[in-house]
Design a protein around this nucleic acid. Structure first.
Lengths: 345, 345
DNA sequence: ATCGGTCACTGAACCGGTTTAGTTAAGGCT
DNA sequence: AGCCTTAACTAAACCGGTTCAGTGACCGAT
């Protein structure tokens, strides 16, 4: 479809420059001429070439997302597909596209960002899975890429953040269990290197402390089913085994719940269990899983919007705060069957 | 990092053209000069500008993937994340990137392909979730985009296909159940509009027929948990309720299994259940789910490789056939508890 | 009547590569 | 020695936009 700006210019009896001005809403053409140019452009079915535009304007008209995950865990995580779908809803009619990179090898993540920047594939990136002391912030600064972060990192960052508090849901879950009468409430956390892994643990610990309970029943896992089972086995084998376990995500909760049942425990009578993410299958487990319903779709669309605004200069620089996910109570939590004294007493 | 081809040319004492020839391994420079040019290029840290290259060579150096899914189902499907990870392993050191589009609205799918083609974002696309009488083939032909399809479509297609047979696993599952003594084996299929939905049903039906059994216990669902439960409820409420259900994926199997348990059925004693995909959590269910282990990672990397070869003309045009996924037997299948006579008799 | 300033627009340079046409020198053949 | 190829290279056109420097025309002010 070889209709170029020159064709339009010729057809409208103006110069290439005039067409460009008309197209981009810039000064330099009268309103009459602009309309005439745009209508002949429409008549010819012309749309400016993305490639030519990219070259001369030094922009890629694309956003990047680098997903660094163990490929084994990738398939089970309901977050990314929905999150990406959210990004797309924003990008759909923006003229921007999403360039997705998956970094499965450790070390290939940095290389991915470097490549995206160096090749000029993208104008900005969305940083997910923020980590403590996240090295990507300095990296992006060095590369000169724009960015948004999911939640505010623990180190100074010049990039706007789109925040969805994950402590409130965990606090609700713990308080819910306390209210039911549990006193030994464990936490199987995700990778503590991630700030969402760490903050969930902190929320769990803080809520326990508020209720005067001990915070010794903690195990770090990797958000995957296998380690979720291992952590559960570890906890249940202890002398002061918990009567409730707050997991950092649904996958570990699902796996842990199944393991406990195999060990002959009844859920929720002998052990209460909560997850995080409110995966679609959570409500179909047996018993249905009490979970915390995050909204990755909204997170994705908001993050993309903030980044786009950032790129065209219309973002005010303030962080965007989204509603905090809330607890969804289901059958996997109930009062402990046989009450026992507080573990520390 | 403003080092351009002209800088290199000047530094090496040659013309821009010579640098281009040297870079692309074309004739037009002597071996000596080529080496000299490449080494000065390396010394200056020059890499050709993707944008400039795109413009002059009319290539995007990117592949596209359009995912058309109900956003509610997107998060639960373990296929895409792994599949995309597979694509990336191939693309990682190819100079190509992946442009991902998610089409959640019906109708926006075609628009997505049109946009990718019209903007020249990508040089080719990977077609997944092939459908019966798939309109995308004609569309891509019209758009002039290269493509690979996942499995060979049921209509004539000029595009190479990367095939992973999904009938063998289902046949194994059905035969496994027959061998255990089941005679009323139902199938909760996925959307029959998809060829993998249809072919799984056919495999189920054919294997039953081979064993002289009826094929009346079929319900179409949408691969989602909710419809999986509904289908299961429907089947279990029948007079000739099945003693085993072969589900078209793990999600529906998981949900169906949980539903059956809630109804007081013991699994596998009262009802055997099989899934498809071998999701990571499948082995952690209670009981662990017998499933069929596909390999989306391999599928993704193969598809990307075929498409790349197609683009640079090194593909021979033949379909690539990958190993068929096989049945993985776990605790959710066993001999039926109380034998009953064949349903049709 | 003249000057300065703005508006509307054009022509050309430019982004950074690829590719074509053309030049020069060397080598092979008769 | 003369002619034809071929190799090795250069200059310039080209991809299709954006943008800068000019150029008239028109306007209001002096």
């Amino acid at each position: 479809m070889p209709v170029t700006i020159s064709d339009v210019a010729r057809a409208a009896g103006v110069s290439k420059g005039a067409v460009s001005y008309a197209l981009n809403g810039q000064a330099g053409v009268s309103e009459d001429t602009r309309r005439r140019i745009l209508s002949t452009a429409a008549a010819l079915g012309w749309t400016p070439s993305l490639r030519a535009r990219s070259l001369s304007s030094s922009k890629a008209y694309a956003l990047g997302l680098v997903v660094a995950r163990n490929p084994r865990l990738l398939g089970t995580d309901p977050f990314f597909p929905s999150f990406i779908a959210g990004i797309e809803t924003t990008l759909a009619d923006s003229g921007y596209s999403l360039v997705l990179t998956v970094a499965t090898q450790t070390g290939s993540e940095e290389a991915s960002y470097r490549r995206l920047a160096h090749e000029g594939r993208v104008d900005g990136v969305i940083l997910s899975d923020m980590r403590t002391d996240d090295s990507r912030i300095a990296l992006l600064l060095e590369l000169g890429l724009a960015a948004v972060t999911l939640n505010r990192p623990d180190t100074p960052s010049p990039f706007p953040a789109v925040c969805m508090d994950d402590t409130e849901g965990i606090s609700q879950a713990v308080q819910h269990l306390v209210d039911l009468g549990h006193t030994r409430i464990a936490h199987v956390g995700g990778t503590q290197h991630y700030i969402h892994g760490l903050s969930r643990r902190n929320a769990w610990a803080n809520t326990l402390k508020l209720n005067g309970l001990e915070t010794d029943l903690f195990i770090e896992a990797d958000f995957g089913a296998t380690e979720g089972v291992a952590a559960t086995a570890d906890l249940l084998a202890r002398d002061n085994a918990p009567t409730a376990i707050v997991y950092a995500n649904d996958i570990m909760a699902t796996a842990g719940q199944a393991y406990a049942q195999q060990q002959g425990l009844r859920i929720p009578a002998d052990l209460s269990v909560t997850g995080y993410d409110n995966t679609e299958y959570a409500q179909y487990l047996n018993p249905a899983l009490t979970s915390i319903g995050s909204d990755p779709l909204l997170w994705g669309s908001s993050a993309a919007q903030v980044l786009l605004n950032q790129l065209d200069g219309t973002h005010d620089g303030a962080d965007v705060v989204l509603p905090a996910p809330r607890l969804i109570t289901r059958g996997s939590t109930a009062a402990p069957h046989n009450r026992s004294s507080s573990g520390s007493k």
